[in-house]
Amino acid sequence: MDFKFDIEGGNFSKAGSASSDVKKVLKKLNVDPKLIKRIVVSIYEAEVNVVAHAYEGEMNVSIFPEKIVVRIVDKGPGIPDIDLAMQKGYSTASPAVREMGFGAGMGLPNIKKNTNELNIKSEVGVGTEVELINYLN
């Protein structure tokens, strides 16, 4: 089963709406509430990253009998150094974004902590693809 939700770059008033839609789908499908909680944390962070850094993106959710795969693909500046971006506290967010309480360098570490498998592919000047895999058992 596949679902797709759009993410608008730069529009903070809509940040979280794709995650909220995914949460509703997972609840309807009776996915374990504990797993939903973990997935919600990671997809929200990934969604906010698109809003904060990219021009546009989409969240693709694929539900298999044994796993849930969420792929967040954006058109944006890309990540030059993924290892650096993974470090707690590292952020390239603008001062305006930081003032809102984002950009503390906790997003990707939060994702890693709440996901069984995290894969990031990025090309500078093109965009980033983040894949989150969670196993159901």
Binding site: F12, A15, S20, K23, G101, M106, N114
Partner: peptide
């Protein structure tokens, strides 16, 4: 916001000085 997202639990009250709409996205999720 990421701190709350990562560490707060359901049915908790959240004390903050942030007043923008994103607090409700977090509170709801």
């Amino acid at each position: 916001l990421s701190d709350v997202m990562g560490n707060a639990d359901a049915d908790q009250v959240w004390v903050t000085l942030q007043t923008h709409k994103n607090i409700m996205a977090i509170a709801s999720l």
